[in-house]
Design a protein around this nucleic acid. Sequence first.
RNA 1: GCCGGCGUAGCUCAGCCGGUAGAGCUACGGUUUCGUAAACCGUGGGUCACAGGUUCGAUUCCUGUCGCCGGCUCCA
Length: 647
Amino acid sequence: MIRITLPDGSVREVKEGASFLEVANGISPRLGKTAVCVRWNGELHDLRETVSADGTLSVVGPGQPEALNTLRHTASHVMAQAIKRRFPNARLGIGPAIEEGFYYDLDLPSPLAEDDLEKITADMREIIAADLPIARRELSKDDARTLFEKRGETYKLELLNDIEGETVSIFEQGEFVDLCRGPHLRSTGGLRADAVKLLSVAGAYWRGDEARPMLQRVYGTAWEKAKDLEQYLWKLEEAAKRDHRKLGKELDLFSIHEEGGAGLICWHPKGARLRRTIEEFWYAEHDRHGYDIVTTPHIGKAQLWTISGHLGFYRENMYSPMDIDGADYFIKPMNCPYQILIYKTRGHSYRELPMRMAELGTVYRYERSGVLHGLLRVRGFTIDDGHIFCRADQVDDEIRGVYDFALSMLTAFGFRDFDIYLATRPHAGKAVGEPERWEQATDALRAALDARGLPYKVDDGGGAFYGPKIDIKVKDTLGRPWQCSTIQFDFNLPERFDMTYIGEDGAEHRPYMVHRALLGSLERFIGCLIEQYGGAFPVWLAPVQAVIIPIADRHNAYAETVAERLRGAGLRAQVDDSAERMNSKIRAAQLNKVPYMLVVGDREAEAGAVALRLRSGEDAGAVPVEAFIQTASGIVRSKSAELWAGA
RNA sequence: GCCGGCGUAGCUCAGCCGGUAGAGCUACGGUUUCGUAAACCGUGGGUCACAGGUUCGAUUCCUGUCGCCGGCUCCA
């Protein structure tokens, strides 16, 4: 007999070879009926699998995340089956469940079109309606090989070769067979035809390797109920409304021009205003944190990039050189070499370390055309680039300081939801610098992370060749993560540039060097910011903080005096003196997501007041101009996310 | 860069199977001067991304280039 421990601590005995389904049925027929899969010793297993040793079991039923995952995995099989019915020559790649759906990669003789998706969907409905039982079989690798060879599934054969162990599992439904670990639903009828939707088709390299064939990846999503699908699609629509590319146009923040070049941003007055607000805050914060601000050139001779190693390691991201008086000059892809040159203009004492240098340095990098994306991935961008040169004994404090600084910056802008990574030494000798230095540096990074206590993931081997790093990523509206802050150790450049300082012992020492960007780049950061707020920025960031709306032309003069008073108090205010009606002006301001609309008519002019309407739609009533300035200024100063302090 | 889709007025979009284009908003002119999300009337505005090709004739079909979108790969 086999002893199975259940979540409530109770133990059940079953005979060896019983399936999980039988076990579930034994616990209660009702549980057996609804069970989707099981968690066996912490891992997900199919109901049809059998028990052969003691373990802990929890049965996964509908409503649990694992169940959704299983359902999506089955949906991907059903889709693959439907595609194979329509295109018998299709060869299967892989088809997993993903965060909010599933995909299947297939090698198809011809590309799929939009209306193919509809046809495939129709076939899927049939397969679901037929309620084909899904069978799980275990067989030896050799048998599996024969099976998939016969079916011409060359990709499956390749996968088979990489699987460890002697036996593999396959899942079958009707004529469809797939090499798969599972788990799966019991039959195709477990899916709801009205809760499955195919979304898009895209190319994907086999096993993510661009040297290998490109398969067609069909993305879909599947839910337990039609209502869940609807809700998901609604969420996608809402996310699309916050897309920074769309908002950038609507709010007149920036533009990119075909004539100018892809990935090159023109900041319009309002976008530039937003950017300037960020820069001003950034400079103030860096002053406060003991940084020296520098400015470095945009181009540099080949010699500089040879010393730095960029021409060796980074050439494919750099633009072609320009000839100046017979010498090759390159547009800078990074700011660090020049900051190092500044460091090297004189000797340094151990006493003046740490030295913290920073600049808003605009760099240009070649990015492959297919990866450009609005403000989030561009070819010309401004890094809030800083470098810390310090002694070994200062490393810990510096890292902790930078990490805290990075988090405080992100937090100031309202970001709460980000992913933190500790990227460690690359494997297989692809790293420069002695192991002890790596260890010390990685420990310093880890200590800083632990000190703050925020959850982080270790990206094993994900460090740069020149040092380990901490990356902080912010997600866009579609859930795609974008790296903003980065803190990177560098064992490479101090060597290459032969950087030194004179220690207490009178001898030359090599300083530690840390590259850090807190916002990442202004372009990307602002892109994330736009999406974060859906364009409705907190008051302190809003390009226009108040629009003054005269009711009739005779109120224009008063409106202008109000605007001047606001501007005198440092608030960004404009008068809408267009020939439109007040309603239209309010609508315009509302669409521009201006926090404050100050309506002025006879009553307000008389009283020296404004009728305050908030972006939220709330009518805050008449407020004396001075009182408005006081409250609004306070909100700006505190960088509050609140629109107005309830009086 | 690769796979697929797309590119029509400043913006959002319509234009069936080849016969040189249309709406709303914007802009401009006029009337209206109005109390919390679009006043009314009128006038402009397009080498249909660009370059070739097929055709009597191309916005429409084909090829190339550029750009955009979704992915893959890669990064701040």
